[in-house]
Design a protein around this nucleic acid. Structure first.
Lengths: 172, 172
DNA sequence: CTTGATAATCAGAAAATCTAATTACATAAT
DNA sequence: ATTATGTAATTAGATTTTCTGATTATCAAG
């Protein structure tokens, strides 16, 4: 009785659709494990992700991307600094701000954790011939486009938008 | 100076790798917008996701997948019930448990928000010919495999594993 | 039918975030 | 130059969320 879909029709999804979903779930699982290993809560971990991506940010910038108040962001930065994950340095031109940067060893640890997977995927895609690579890129692009238009639609209140029509290239 | 990668070499990623990353980020953006629209915190939203996927769960099962204590899970359920997102019904065979089920309108709202995107992706992949579909599935499978082995590696302490070697099918 | 485990909840403490006020600095307009 | 206004970060105290430990009800094994 665990998953008998009583009411909703199961709806046969394409394996690729299922795999995309699986990737999203696996990403969350990975994040959870890394968070636990680094002893960081969700917010602090997200902050580290942004800091590593951007190399350095002011508390204000961090607050924006984390959707936190300035006050909460101060405490995030305090916690991360106390644990040695980041350093505060004075902003070169604006003395009201700080520049927050991830510590050397945090960056290295993250690299060591994620690089194998990233390289794995990168190597995999490069192992296809050019045409197949183009197919993969085309598909992924359309996923990004669909998600992007969903985001746009959701941002402007709940007004559903008709799905895109795709030209069908199947050989009969 | 925002992204001059001072120190780390930029490392040229395949467009497909970049797109995969983009998809993961977009997923979080979408979740955030939906959460805000439904006025749910991260945890309560995650609970709804699991409940919709499984159709119904006991508080104990919910606690496991949310990585929460039983006590915290009780409050999650209380909040969701108070807002009308779920209902508690007695467990058919074990009178200690409840069965938590998402409300009709919660399921419908989620469907309306996500279905267009899901169908979009599904239609897109079906628009390729069989061989190209196989390429896409093969690639996605390898992404899942890479992430899965990363998860496995991370779960057993920080012991890095050498990346997979892929057979190269490029035409010279 | 008693004993030991399990499911959910309650009570109070701890952690994380919020609102509002404060301090220091920057920028624009006299 | 001086003042006025706005912005960046922090602090203080309240609120929300989660945790630990104890409690109640039920199940399952002997």
């Amino acid at each position: 009785m665990q998953n008998s879909h009583g009411g909703r029709p199961p709806m046969q999804m394409h394996p690729a659709s299922v795999l995309v979903r699986q990737i999203l779930v696996l990403n969350e699982v990975m994040e959870f494990i890394m968070r636990r290993e680094m002893d960081l809560n969700e917010t602090d971990f997200q902050a580290m992700q942004h800091l590593m991506k951007q190399r350095s940010m002011s508390p204000g910038e961090l607050a924006k991307v984390l959707h936190l108040t300035a006050a909460a962001t101060t405490t995030v930065i305090d916690r991360l600094a106390r644990k040695g994950h980041i350093t505060r340095t004075p902003h070169p031109t604006d003395r009201r701000r700080w520049l927050i940067s991830p510590s050397e060893q945090s960056v290295r640890a993250a690299m060591e954790n994620l690089m194998p997977m990233i390289l794995d995927v990168d190597n995999k895609v490069r192992s296809y011939n050019d045409r197949d690579q183009a197919v993969i890129v085309d598909f992924l692009n359309s996923v990004v486009a669909s998600m992007g238009s969903r985001v746009a639609a959701l941002e402007n209140g709940p007004a559903p938008i008709p799905p895109t029509v795709h030209t069908d290239s199947r050989k009969v």
